[in-house]
Nucleic acid binder design. Structure first.
Lengths: 127, 127
DNA sequence: TATATGTTCTATATGATATAGAACAATGAG
DNA sequence: CTCATTGTTCTATATCATATAGAACATATA
């Protein structure tokens, strides 16, 4: 079972928080390809949010190719496919994030150190 | 002189676009510490946006410590100070960005390659 | 058939975004 | 000193995103 929480006081939209936590569970290896997510109404009950909000998170993940609808109308984790578009998206975001870090005085060493640490912490293989 | 453009059709708020372009100019070395930004009313005229919108971007950058008000009521580029909080902020963002990349199937090699490329492209020293 | 589940539609409330105008305080130029 | 410049603050309005809510529908499983 997946443990997900949301912060109603955060400035980050609820559906985004849900989406990002699911992504976190995938990279942590707690959600593996083929496993299914809880029904939106059930997930909504646990998180104490409206089921439309959970649905929106699921729709995002589906549009991003991270989950897909399968038999029984359940969303299941997709097998990851490294696509050129995903590479471009990552590069675009990374460009902005690194620009901000550099502007704030971090140097290449600081940045490399943090990136390596995150890769070490998060790296998991998907079948 | 700094060349900045905004896209009125983008989903990214205008004041964010302005803020990010200024950050880009700083890391590109086109804006150096001590140099001043155009008055908000002038910048607004060039960008064809309201001057309150430019003001909001300037306020963001001021709150982030990237610019400061100096004599003549002009905003000037600050000298970068690498603070622990900035390191933490970067790590928080990087954690989420890398999680998404990994979830989409990119591997550590892909990520390192793109990060290194961005550092190579953007790295500039600030006095 | 009956239940579960995602989907679609309408509706409402709140906050963020963007524009706008007016007035004020502090600063530098003349 | 006087005046224009510039950032700041206030009110106001319009639009869009977010979040909740309820209802009805289609499909798949039991």
């Amino acid at each position: 079972m997946v443990l997900i929480t949301v912060d109603h006081n955060s400035k980050i939209p609820l559906y985004r928080q849900i989406r990002e936590q699911i992504i976190r569970e995938i990279t942590a290896g707690n959600l593996k390809p083929g496993e299914s997510l809880p029904p939106s109404r059930l997930m909504a009950g646990m998180l104490e949010v409206n089921f439309h909000t959970v649905n929106r998170a699921y729709e995002c993940l589906r549009d991003e190719g991270l989950i897909k609808l399968s038999r029984g109308k359940k969303y299941t984790i997709s097998s990851a496919v490294r696509s050129p578009k995903d590479m471009e998206d990552f590069e675009t975001i990374e460009r902005a994030v690194i620009a901000e870090a550099l502007a704030k005085g971090l140097d290449a060493t600081d940045i490399m150190q943090i990136v390596k640490k995150q890769l070490r912490t998060q790296k998991h293989v998907r079948s």
